[in-house]
Design a protein around this nucleic acid. Structure first.
Lengths: 137, 137
DNA sequence: CTACAGTCTGTAGCAACTACAGGCTCAAGA
DNA sequence: TCTTGAGCCTGTAGTTGCTACAGACTGTAG
């Protein structure tokens, strides 16, 4: 049980540290089947290797780019089957990109309303407020 | 029990219809204390009037502008106490605006990465894909 | 030999809803 | 008058993506 110190394999904390992933999130990904059930030591401790590091990094990068868990699962399924094609992945990426752009558009609309309404505020210690008026109207 | 038809007061579905709010969401807002517990008919049906319509619209508008429930609760608390000042509301609005702008910045970073990576894709029926490479790297 | 850090499991909580199931009530048509 | 069906009631579970705990066990260092 000292090989995880010598670096031959990793325990959960090691995987977390190598990937920047939260400790509990690893277990969560295993539970929902994004990460495989890892082999165990005789006493039940999880054993990870570089393949786990790579897969978890893939998931985390995709999450950083805003892909939903189910979308990432889809990508991983493709790759796991060796069935991925650049055409398919590109299409999925562009669909996701469209979602991202829609969210940006939503937020920019919100930003405009907030900024223009707040700009009407006197900022004085008075009860009347254009922001409240806008919300109540 | 016919006054809600004549328009003197509203039942839950009427309030939902007047505000565009989902039926169940009304009950949810009552449960978490954003909306007051409404008076009831003898048989337990909720009774709403214009004050409920106004308050619910306030909440829904604020939600549309991305305010979190707790922020809205804060604004409503101010107003309910008559303690609101334009200065205070402006400050809260600008804090929220900063959050919105941060989210936009995040999404734009994501958008750039997605767009530039997808642009590298051949889109062909080949297994190699720049998007997958970027995620795996 | 004993601390104590690390791991294990199951479960509960977060935001902000949404959607049932199973039981009442009310108004309208036969 | 009776019945049908829509609408209301309550409690609870599901959603997404984690995060955090409690209580038990294990492994290592002093």
């Amino acid at each position: 049980m000292a090989d995880h110190v010598s670096g031959k394999w990793l325990q959960r904390a090691g995987l977390a540290q190598r990937t920047g992933c939260n400790l509990e999130t690893i277990r969560y990904y295993e539970r929902i089947g994004m990460m495989p059930d890892p082999p165990r030591t005789a006493s039940g401790y999880r054993i990870y290797d570089d393949s786990h590091v790579a897969r978890l990094r893939f998931i985390l990068r995709a999450r950083e780019l805003g892909f939903a868990i189910e979308q990432i699962r889809g990508l991983l399924d493709l790759v796991d089957c060796g069935a991925q094609t650049c055409a398919e992945v590109k299409e999925r990426t562009e669909r996701h990109l469209a979602d991202v752009r829609a969210k940006i558009a939503d937020l920019r609309r919100i930003e405009k309303v907030l900024a223009s309404t707040a700009a009407l505020c006197s900022g004085d210690e008075v009860p009347e407020c254009p922001v409240l008026d806008a919300l109540a109207s």
